[in-house]
């Protein structure tokens, strides 16, 4: 993005910020519009979702009016947008609570899971990718490639169930589905909604341990996919770098091999790597319906999905907006990180 040269640096910054914000606004508005229209044109009666199949005609008609469905589509959308602008996302039909309250509860569960999974993906995936590139053709390289392939092809549902069967049912290394065991519920008062953080803040280390035990497996399962993607990309970026002439120059100069790999080559792939990691993280933050289903994890993915299946429009729109904000936010963050890693982008 180039800015007019004649502007003062602060003016340039302001212009850039305004342009970015306007872009974000348009994106989110478009997202809402598309979701709204799609949800209204599907051949499903949203009134039925509220009143059920057995309801009489009077209740049916009244609910239709209550939901505002008797008005033209553009009026419905206009009303909704003006509501959202005031911070009111409406009530969810399925949970009987304000959508904002629901999201405040389900999003942290997803955030915790996605963050843990991405940590696993980065901490294991990057070194594995680097090792595979350095030892190209060695068994470790084959292993990384097999994991990469598996990560793309094994259904997450199956991997989750098999993980439960092995690590929970057979070995007993981890706790089962859910975020906490029954005995640990109600001990920690939710502050952030992130169980690990809340437990740590309250210094309830047993609860913390139990939460970790519940988190490890679903995070591990999602982590495998994140790891597979990050590992493969790291490997191919690294292979590309290791063939470059500056690496040969460094070797000739007698720079240690470790420094060449971990500092020079890895340093140079940081920009594309950050993009890869950000994309994978943003993807996980949308919530993973299948993983959440297998592990009885009350996250955003299953919230949006079940709302969608029940035509709970406020919940769907609210959830979609959150996903949109997250996506845009993670992208902005990775843009900022570019500038950190690449002096040319500053």
């Amino acid at each position: 993005m180039s800015s007019p040269e004649f502007l003062h640096p602060i003016g340039r910054l302001l212009l850039r910020v305004t342009a970015t914000l306007a872009g974000v606004g348009v994106t989110l508005f478009g997202l809402l519009l598309v979701t709204f229209v799609i949800a209204r044109v599907v051949p499903v009666d949203p009134v039925l979702a509220v009143v059920g199949d057995n309801a009489g005609p009077d209740l049916y008609d009244r609910t239709r009016v209550e939901l505002g469905l008797d008005r033209p589509l553009y009026v419905q959308f206009g009303l909704y947008v003006s509501q959202v602008a005031r911070g009111d996302f409406g009530m969810s039909v399925l949970t009987s609570r304000p959508v904002t309250e629901d999201i405040a509860r389900y999003f942290p569960a997803t955030l915790e899971l996605a963050t843990a999974a991405t940590l696993i993906g980065v901490l294991l995936g990057v070194p594995m990718g680097v090792l595979a590139a350095v030892r190209q053709g060695h068994w470790i390289d084959h292993l990384v490639r097999v994991i990469g392939l598996a990560g793309y092809s094994i259904p997450v549902f199956w991997l989750g169930l098999m993980g439960l069967l092995l690590f929970y049912a057979e070995l007993g290394w981890v706790a089962g589905p859910g975020r906490l065991s029954i005995g640990y519920e109600d001990i920690v008062e939710p502050v952030t909604g992130l169980l690990l953080l809340d437990a740590a803040l309250a210094r309830e280390w047993e609860v913390f341990g139990n939460a970790v035990s519940h988190l490890v497996l679903p995070a591990g399962v999602l982590g495998v996919f994140s790891l597979a993607y990050i590992g493969r990309m790291t490997r191919s970026f690294m292979l590309d770098q290791l063939r470059q002439e500056y690496i040969i120059t460094a070797r000739v100069k007698g720079v240690s091999e470790a420094r060449i790999v971990w500092r020079h080559a890895l340093g140079n792939i940081m920009v594309p790597l950050v993009t890869v990691i950000a994309l994978s993280y943003a993807h996980l933050l949308e919530g993973s319906v299948l993983t959440e289903t297998v592990f009885a994890w009350p996250g955003l993915g299953s919230y949006i999905t079940s709302s969608l299946l029940n035509v709970d429009m406020n919940a769907v729109l609210g959830g979609t907006l959150v996903v949109g904000v997250v996506f845009v936010g993670v992208n902005l963050l990775s843009d900022l990180l570019y500038r950190l890693f690449d002096p040319r982008a500053r």
Partner: peptide, 20 residues
């Protein structure tokens, strides 16, 4: 009485077998 939402039947079976 605590009733927990476990959507997946296979997960329900594992929880029962483990005594959770």
């Amino acid at each position: 009485v605590v009733v927990r939402h476990v959507a997946e039947a296979a997960a329900q079976r594992l929880l029962l077998e483990k005594g959770d």
